[in-house]
Design a protein around this nucleic acid. Structure first.
Lengths: 250, 250
DNA sequence: ACAAAAGTGTTTTGGGTACACCCATGT
DNA sequence: ACATGGGTGTACCCAAAACACTTTTGT
């Protein structure tokens, strides 16, 4: 083993034994959804319709979060979105456990041992142009995900667990909310993700104690009821007030 | 790209572009320590003494947690110890940022792009035979770690952050305590890891509410003061009582 | 008898939770 | 005028935090 072995590599060349898979959560109308991609998988003379998480190999020049952002852009057109790694899946047989899936993926691989780094990200479906998705991908209710290819169901489950965990400890909600939002929008978002409901008065009492939630001198327009006050999230104030014990539970 | 490219691989062959680095926390006498390994690094005619985290490449047949357990065994002789992955470090230049370190590592690499998966683990230093370590590795106070090779200081910092985070949400303390322990031992352990002190009465009131902390009909022996009652952790009861909101803060 | 750690209770303060009505706007 | 969501206060309970003395053992 000498450095002479290290040959020149092109910018887009990928690492054969590592990939990134993305669990892209989309929120709309009090529903939490996940993006899955369709694949036609021929096996023993039949063609099966299967679904998987979007993923890709890592380029030699990329940090893995750049890989995840690239996948997100390819799938949704969105840029500068928060992405977060949550776990590495490294079972040596993770691609081989299902014979049908393995037959499909084998010709696409340089090496049949591939570790994958799971990322999740959160987007607001209002920001996405879904016209390109049609037939190639779809948004599925997060509570109805099942039967994905390979170990992708397990990856999804871990992502969902981590998403909820992180939402209670980091100001992640604000990645999903518009810059100016109402307290009810914020509450509904938590309720969708945790599949529960909160008491409005108690919820408001709690979030009103957060010094980085700034009430604006602005209200909703165009709604056929009493317009709600708009709020915004001040990240600077958040960073200054952050403590070890801080917690976003509501 | 076809499957023909996949050649036969030996059991111990490693993946050239992925490694595992371990932050091994050891606890003893109210001190929290970390294991680092010594390397002699020749550079520009001089030899430098440097320290790094123990790490290794991943074998083709291994899950990454097996790699971490293997490293732990090599370093400490211990087996069946809890290990936990916490983050992937993937900066394309992570090995090249320091010229001296890169010169040293280059001849040891098959590929100069290596992602590493950070693991941490927790051991009780009483369980370790340190005679083999001498000169090759040392235990350093966790609050005095600095100047490790490559990005290992950053890896350590993330591990420490994750360790504290996890200790508040999972029954991790019990990995470090003997099977039968006193409440004061448990308290001192938290105090070492969080670098703080707690009020004894409040601490005991809180842990006494944990149904999976079982008081035994057994007391300390051989101490020159009032002997303390021994407790044990019942994982079954813990798993049954676990809730989304559960939390180990004291 | 002394040293050393074990063990124990009360008070105050603040957060969590449960609960019901009036308000401002668009149609 | 009606439908729709916006917005507000009080009472109860429990957890967190502050705080000091007695007990049991070994030497």
């Amino acid at each position: 083993m000498t450095s002479e072995k290290i040959k020149h590599k092109t910018t887009f060349e990928t690492l054969p034994t590592i990939s990134v898979d993305c669990v892209i959560f989309g929120y709309e109308e009090n529903m939490l959804k996940v993006l899955v991609r369709r694949e036609f998988v021929p096996f023993q003379g039949q063609i099966y319709l299967e679904w998987k998480l979007p993923g890709n190999h890592i380029r030699r020049t990329e940090d893995i979060s750049e890989t995840a952002s690239r996948i997100l852009k390819e799938q949704t057109g969105l840029e500068n979105i928060f992405v977060k790694q949550f776990m590495v899946f490294s079972d040596p047989n993770r691609l081989k456990n299902n014979e049908r899936d393995y037959e499909w993926v084998k010709p696409r691989l340089e090496d049949d041992r591939v570790l994958t780094v799971g990322f999740y990200s959160l987007i607001n479906l209002k920001d996405v142009d879904n016209s390109k998705l049609i037939e190639v991908a779809k948004w599925v209710n997060a509570y109805e995900i099942n039967d994905l290819m390979f170990d992708h169901k397990e990856i999804f489950d871990e992502a969902f667990k981590k998403l909820r965990y992180d939402l209670l400890h980091e100001p992640l909600v604000f990645e999903l909310l518009p810059v100016k939002f109402t307290l009810t929008q914020m509450q509904k978002l938590y309720e969708a993700i945790f599949n529960t409901t909160y008491d409005k008065r108690n919820y408001r009492r709690k979030v009103n104690k957060m010094p980085y939630l700034i009430p604006l001198d602005e209200i909703q327009t165009g709604v056929s009821h009493k317009p709600a006050r708009l709020y915004t999230f001040d990240r600077d104030i958040y960073e200054k007030n952050r403590t070890e014990r801080f917690d976003f539970r509501v």
